[in-house]
Computed example of a mutant assay.
Amino acid sequence: MATLAKAPVTSRPPSYYIRQRLRQNTPAMFGLCIILIAALLAIGGYVFMPDSTPNANNGLVQLQKKAPGFSTQVLLLRRPAEAVRKVNFISYIFSGEPSQYSELPVESYSFSGDSILVQPLRSNNAMNDQLRKFALTDVTGKQGDEAQLQQQVEQEHLVSRTFWLGTDKAGRDVMSRLILGTRISLGIGFVAVLISLVVGITVGALGGYFGGWVDKLMLFLMTVVWSVPSIMLVIAISLAIDSKGVWVAFVAVGLTMWVEVARVVRGQILSLKEKTYVEAAKVLGIPQYKIIYRHLLPNMIGPLIVIATANFASAILIEAGLSFLGLGVQPPAPSWGMMVNEGFQLIGAKSGLFLVLLPSICISLLVLAFNLLGNGLRDAYDPKIPISNA
């Protein structure tokens, strides 16, 4: 009687099952997609922005507090060659490029010989602006026939501009500032999480592994830092270095989040340092720092990744709150929290509603994405959760 051959059992590493559980978690994958889109916008930055000037700070007084979808014609006036600064592509990606033109929103225009007459767009603070006259050669920076110059002005220097998400109280494009604000939020989150991991792992590993007076000292340090509100710590750091800005926010947010990491690492090391392989490493004379960083910490990668995603979301919220209070990122750099504050000051106007709502949605969506991904990673590292069709 023939016997049926058994199918070979494929041995897979634990990382395979972690990836499978994560892929089957729809909310976590949704959060991951949102994070990847935000990271692409943060890295590309000025490439995706309608206003690619540094800090998206090209404000026009005639365009203050316009509603989403507002469109107008803009006359581009060439600036002197010595006032135009060219930048390479790398500098453009990181800090943008000053505009080669000064812009004038117009309601109507007409040509008169070698000049163009424009009616500027009425601003919110004036009933009407006076008719303005510009020489065609000044607009184009070239000499030539009047008909050719008029055609060039209409084709190259009179452009239609649409502000899909409106403008703020300084006449700046809200969409551009929201996109650049993604870089601020993700940047602060990344640096804050990095600082919290470095400090938290060091403090927690020392206290958990050595015990005794070292553990008591580390616990005292964690308790003291845990009891200090993050806002008070930011104020203290700002006063200590006599500065306010994005780097102060980076450091301050990071230094308020390491305690949770340290507590997790300490607890894990307290349970792992009694294992047989740790005792064997001590008997073999392996240095203690190698035992910690080569044998103990690699066993905590899962919990550390989960706590890092949760801290990322917390860092974004803390940064937004600090910027709202004026203690974080300083103008003209765009921050979602600062944009909410600007909209809050105009809450009685229609534009104020959009200025509060749009950055608030961005903050909520990005925080939700990190929380969903963190929950998905927590489940993915749980071996008790079954895998369908694995």
Rank of each mutant, 00 (worst) to 15 (best):
P229E: 05
P98N: 00
G189F: 02
T202D: 11
V251N: 09
T309V: 07
R122F: 12
Q151I: 07
A7I: 12
S314G: 14
L297W: 04
F163V: 04
Q73I: 08
S108R: 12
R161G: 03
F70M: 07
G200E: 09
V139L: 13
M339H: 07
S238D: 01
N124Y: 12
I179A: 11
S271V: 14
I37P: 02
L63N: 01
M49P: 00
G200I: 04
G207D: 06
T223R: 10
A126L: 13
I305T: 08
T26D: 09
L77E: 11
I43W: 01
I195V: 14
V259E: 03
W226F: 14
T256W: 05
A147V: 09
P13T: 10
P334I: 05
P334Q: 05
V84T: 07
L270Y: 13
W213Q: 09
N311Y: 03
M175P: 02
G200K: 02
Q345H: 11
R172Q: 10
L255G: 08
L221F: 06
R183Q: 03
N371T: 06
S243T: 09
R78I: 08
L217C: 11
A147P: 10
K275R: 15
V228W: 07
F250M: 10
P98E: 01
W213V: 12
L284H: 14
I188S: 00
P303E: 00
I179C: 05
E274P: 13
A236S: 13
A28E: 05
T256M: 11
G374C: 08
S112I: 10
T10C: 03
R183L: 02
A315Y: 01
S95E: 10
H295V: 15
P383H: 04
G59C: 07
Y17P: 03
G352V: 12
W164L: 15
D242W: 09
L353Q: 09
S115M: 01
Q64K: 15
D382A: 10
K169Q: 15
S185K: 00
A308C: 08
G254K: 01
P332R: 01
A39P: 08
